[in-house]
């Protein structure tokens, strides 16, 4: 448990010490609101500094991997890695967000927050895969796209939008796995896929609970409550049919056993690809569109439609 309570290590996330945590709990209790501790535990597990990242999975899942760099426009963003991997008699394009573990690598990877060139590299690699009929797997693990002046000047919004468009357009089978933090548009930009899988202790949300609390509750210390209200756990998302499958993690969480987590992911990937590869490519693409077309809940003529 003390391990779980390790502080989140991301910028923009207010580091809370134990005291504020406890006082927060007391405040909640005083107000009589029921806070489900399990939800925040999942947020912390998803951000756990020892949780396997994209390159950890790649190392454990594939024998041969060639990383490809650069967007051919501006630079190479280390917050997104991608490349070709040999995988059970076929080639696979693997693209994912990459966080760092120590100060130097965290800075290099920009805490897993991509800039436009990261998304443009991803597009370039996906188009390359499409050209040769290579299936694409993406691994999602980012607090969000980087909010910075230069990133905006180079078109952060348009880079994400075009990444989505590129993914919608692909003729090859595509699978996304949310392996840690699925933070907003920066995460979704790589997750418009035929199948979206999610590791049990990952989260996927429209906004970080901290920012949501700051805006709606006018108090970022209400993040626990925001996390619960937003419904960002794998169980919530499965219920809303946003994701196709929840993958169980090794006991205690993926950070306890990287190799076992990679095996689970590998099996799930194999199953998803086997199913997708037998489909007619045009039908597969059509189903992708229909799946995303169904996303949303609204009332029409008084009826609530899911």
């Amino acid at each position: 448990m003390t391990e779980l309570k390790r502080l989140p290590t991301l910028p923009g996330v207010h580091l809370k010490d134990e005291i504020t945590k406890i006082s927060q709990r007391l405040k909640e209790l005083g107000r009589g609101r029921h806070l489900d501790k399990a939800v925040w535990d999942k947020v912390e597990l998803a951000r756990h500094p020892k949780r396997p990242y994209t390159l950890d999975y790649i190392e454990n899942m594939f024998a041969g991997f060639i990383e490809l760099h650069g967007d051919r426009c501006y630079g190479d963003d280390s917050a997104i890695v991608g490349g070709l991997a040999a995988y059970q008699g076929r080639t696979l394009m693997v693209i994912g967000h990459q966080k760092g573990r120590d100060l130097a690598s965290r800075t290099k990877r920009n805490f897993g927050m991509p800039r436009p060139e990261g998304y443009r590299k991803a597009q370039r690699l996906m188009q390359l895969a499409d050209k040769f009929g290579i299936p694409v797997m993406t691994l999602i693990d980012t607090p969000g796209a980087f909010p910075g002046i230069a990133a905006e000047e180079r078109g952060q919004g348009s880079a994400i939008a075009n990444s989505l468009l590129c993914m919608a357009r692909l003729n090859v089978p595509t699978v996304a796995v949310i392996i840690g933090e699925g933070g907003s548009g920066g995460a979704l930009a790589l997750a418009l896929t035929d199948r979206v899988l999610m590791l049990e202790n990952s989260v996927y949300s429209v906004i970080t609970p901290e920012a949501c609390a700051a805006i709606l509750w006018k108090d970022s210390s209400e993040a626990h409550l925001a996390a619960q209200t937003l419904g960002m756990t794998s169980a919530d998302l499965a219920r809303l049919e946003i994701i196709d499958e929840v993958l169980p993690e090794p006991r205690g969480g993926a950070h306890r056993d990287h190799a076992a987590a990679a095996r689970i992911l590998k099996d799930a990937l194999e199953e998803a690809l086997r199913e997708l590869e037998t489909m007619n490519p045009r039908l597969r693409k059509k189903e992708r569109f229909e799946k995303f077309r169904r996303m949303g809940v609204w009332k029409e003529n008084g009826l609530t439609l899911f």
Partner: peptide
């Protein structure tokens, strides 16, 4: 509308 709102980005892109 939480994650459902986020997915509208994907939906509109498909359109």
């Amino acid at each position: 509308e939480g994650i459902l709102s986020l997915l509208q980005m994907a939906k509109t892109t498909c359109a």
